[in-house]
Design a protein around this nucleic acid. Structure first.
Length: 596
RNA sequence: GGUCCCGUAGUUCAACGGAUAGAACGGAAGUUUCCUAAACUUUAAAUACAGGUUCGAUUCCUGUCGGGACUACCA
């Protein structure tokens, strides 16, 4: 039982005894006492005044007197305005810490039995991944881990957008100016190679448009009439017909891109349980449209196109099938959602997709409801903000994108430089050092992204790079390495410490109590973060714990403690800190090295 | 026009409706005979504006002003 719940339940007894009032424990407000006040936890009594019919001070004092007299764990109290500050006994903290240290599953919530699919990443196979994708991937990955820690059965999925005009553009440019270039012949990573041809296409296209305009064609018309674009559309038609040459080229180039993506995913430490390809799913959903027509949920216009009218819900009319009977983007989404819910017996489905698609998901959900699917309410769009650069949005055409592979490499280099500069780790094998540099560089990147509330637009300044000091991944990694270092020394000195043999009445310093307090909030934080789908909550928790430890480290000579029981107790405490840091950072997908 | 999101120190981020709005970076000043200085200590600096709801509002509501996204027979 958490201290908050403990106090709430005792306060209920107090209210019953003092005022003969029945109160739900969950309605009571208990919070950690702010540092500047005496006490451990604080009961806010303002909401109770209507029960006590008395002043805040008197009410708080009455409850405090009762708790001090009746509850052995509560040792002292004081009242400041309407705040009842309670102090627990040393014994209570020992017991509480015993619960934390003795539970190997601490921080993992009980199983819910729910199946949740998390779809994220979902890249286009016409250009390499950039910083925006990194935010998507890291969020998706950590949210999946978070939901697992919350006791759910999680299936990670991605939908590869491997079909469409944008893919044909790269293919066309490669045919026109590629001279048979391959990843092998050029030494380029496959996704970058194909991305280069996408850029090449746009250059060709722009030149054609300019020429048409120079000949007197209006801009809008020129943008539609440019020969290269027409060819690309033609190529898509050929693709849909199954033309062998087009399909072969398509398969070859997609293969290059996908193996490039695999490298990037590997570098990011990310994988998927299920990979969907749009080329295989884009047909889905048409039967659903027919079903909606039959039930009267949708309407057919004279030209044969099918629409869903959402004007009653404050939105517009939404196209579901074109006049020629072909499907649009949302048609497929309807179909895949239905397929996934039935195939995997999903209870929930989380889509990690940028906030530019908020409207799309609003519409998707509404249409699914109109189709009568009960699970429509269990679709959740985890909408995250764009990553902006100091001069605005990233634009591939203007060459202002921050490439994912470059960024990962840059983080690795910084980690290496910092480490070499510090002169530590000289005794390690080169391969171990390399592994460390990657873990630290990636830790900095992941933490930087994931500590920000998902829905906020975030800013990335390439010039300033990502910090390795302060509230960062490496700070937490460093803290963990420090703890491990102390524990190694303790082991070397043959000191025995284990949770099982720990004394139950150690005298704890205020700092130690604070650390126990923070440790104890971990399961609640996991639950809170899971409900909000926000790994940022876990990141902030880890930082708070790490910071607290570092202060403790500087004010306490842990290994110099002469009393054997106290020394063992301290070592157990810091080892638990290390374990909880590992669990928290594990949810964020960040490795914690033993040394750095 | 319509739908939605966001405005907190110079900068990047925090704060279930709770106490004197927290951190970090950057700025200023310190701490290495001591378990890892990627650390620690001290210091200056912020809720866009105006109303409302109440014991109490950065948080909820309304309006104003700023920034952004979407509103394609593209995906």
């Amino acid at each position: 039982m958490t201290p908050e719940n403990f106090i709430a339940s005792k306060a209920v007894q107090a209210l019953k005894s003092l005022y003969n009032a029945d109160v739900e424990p969950s309605t009571l407000q208990v919070q950690v006492t702010r540092k500047e006040f005496e006490g451990d936890y604080t009961l806010v009594v303002f909401p109770l005044l209507r029960i006590s019919h008395s002043t805040p001070d008197n009410t708080a004092k009455a409850i405090g007197d009762y708790l001090k007299a009746e509850v052995p764990e509560i040792e002292e109290f004081n009242v400041v305005k309407g705040f009842l500050n309670l102090s627990f006994s040393n014994l209570y903290w020992n017991e509480l810490f015993g619960e934390v240290s003795g539970d190997p599953d601490f921080g993992r919530l009980p199983s819910t039995g729910k199946n949740i699919m998390v779809e994220f990443s979902s890249p286009n196979t016409n250009k390499p991944l950039h910083l925006g994708h990194i935010r998507n991937n890291l969020l998706g990955d950590s949210v999946s881990k978070l939901l697992r820690a919350c006791g759910n059965n999680v299936i990670t999925a991605t939908l590869v957008n491997d079909r469409g005009v944008h893919i044909c553009k790269s293919m066309l440019a490669w045919e026109m100016v590629g001279n048979g270039e391959t990843p092998e012949s050029s030494g380029k990573k496959g996704d970058h190679l194909v991305g280069d041809y996408y850029v090449a296409f746009n250059a060709i296209y722009k030149k054609e448009v300019d020429e048409l305009i120079a000949k007197g064609m209006p801009k809008e018309e020129a943008e539609k009439e440019a020969p290269s674009l027409k060819k690309a559309h033609l190529m898509l038609v050929e693709w849909e017909k199954g033309d062998k040459a087009v399909r072969d080229l398509w398969a070859k180039m997609n293969g290059w891109v996908l193996s490039g993506f695999d490298e990037t995913y590997k570098a990011l430490g990310i994988s998927f349980d299920k990979v969907y390809f749009e080329s295989q799913t884009y047909i889905l959903g048409k039967e659903l449209v027919q079903k909606g027509l039959d039930s009267g949920a949708f309407v057919k216009d004279p030209d044969g196109s099918v629409w869903c009218d959402l004007t009653a819900d404050g939105l517009d009319r939404k196209l579901l099938l074109r006049g020629d009977g072909t499907s649009v983007y949302i048609t497929q989404d309807l179909g895949t959602a239905e397929k996934r819910f039935s195939e995997y017996k999903l209870d929930e489905h989380v889509y990690v997709v940028g906030d530019e698609q908020n409207y799309h998901f609003q519409v998707l959900k509404l249409i699914l409801k109109k189709l009568g699917f009960a699970w429509a309410d269990h679709i959740y769009h985890l909408s995250y903000g764009m990553v902006e650069l100091p001069n605005g949005k990233m634009k591939s055409r203007e060459g202002t994108v921050v490439d994912a592979d470059d960024l990962i490499e840059q983080m690795y280099q910084t980690a290496k430089e910092t480490s070499v500069e510090s002169g530590k780790l000289t005794d390690l094998e080169d391969s171990e050092k390399e592994k460390l540099y990657h873990e630290i560089g990636l830790g900095a990147l992941k933490y930087f992204i994931v500590k920000v509330d998902p829905k906020k637009t975030m800013l990335f300044n390439p010039k300033e790079s990502i910090d390795f000091n302060g509230n960062t991944g490496p700070f937490i990694q460093y803290t963990h390495a420090r703890i491990k270092s102390i524990l190694r020394k303790a082991d070397a000195q043959g000191i025995n410490y284990s949770a099982a043999t720990m004394k139950k009445d150690l005298s704890l310093t205020p700092k130690e109590i604070r650390i126990i307090k923070i440790l104890n909030t971990f399961p609640a934080k996991v639950g809170e973060a899971g409900a909000a789908l926000s790994p940022a909550i876990i990141a902030n928790f880890a930082y708070e714990l790490a910071k607290e430890f570092n202060q403790y480290y500087h004010e306490t000579q842990i290994l110099k403690e002469p009393d054997a029981d106290l020394l063992a107790g301290r070592l157990v405490l810091i080892s638990v800190v290390a374990q909880v840091l590992e669990k928290a950072m594990g949810i964020l997908g960040i490795e914690l090295p033993d040394r750095m």
